[in-house]
Amino acid sequence: MAAVGGAGNGAGEEAGGAEFYLRYYVGHKGKFGHEFLEFEFRPDGKLRYANNSNYKNDTMIRKEVFVSPSVLREARRIIQDSEIMKEDDSNWPEPDRVGRQELEIVMGNEHISFTTSKIGSLVDVQTSKDPEGLRIFYYLVQDLKCFVFSLINLHFKIKPIQL
């Protein structure tokens, strides 16, 4: 395993593929059940997207498609530019009844799995205990959602249910 991973960090990384994983979840459990939006990029390029809002309809949307190495490389670039891997979620607001966000990323030899509450606006960011870190998270999540929504929308011609 170690040998495989080491090689993946070299040539594979330049090729835009190996040692990259991204998952984002936002949701809550309430009177309409478990309403959420989640997407995931796997190392082999599989992009999975799941979206459920019982309020608007009963069926969960589950879509998947393989993206090209160029798309994965762009996702990596967005994450690298954000410098989220240097942050820590220990002082971020804890998830509550209003909702929960999760951001999990594996890149190179680092693995983050951050969790916080829903962030309504920048006011929530400013008044938190870690405004600088939470701001990075706040903007990165929006940029990643924007990227994935475009990919899913163009490929399947469906609009995400915004939570």
Binding site: M1, A2, V4, G5, G6, G8, N9, E19, R23, Y25, G27, H34, F36, E38, F39, E40, R48, A50, N52, D88, D89, S90, E94, P95, R100, E102, E104, V106, G108, N109, E110, H111, I112, S113, F114, T115
Partner: peptide, 18 residues
């Protein structure tokens, strides 16, 4: 297996559906 650092308060308590 190559990952050396793994950070986050709620590791293992994900609500992930996927």
């Amino acid at each position: 297996a190559v990952a050396r650092t793994s950070r986050g308060r709620f590791v293992g308590r994900s609500r992930s559906v996927i």
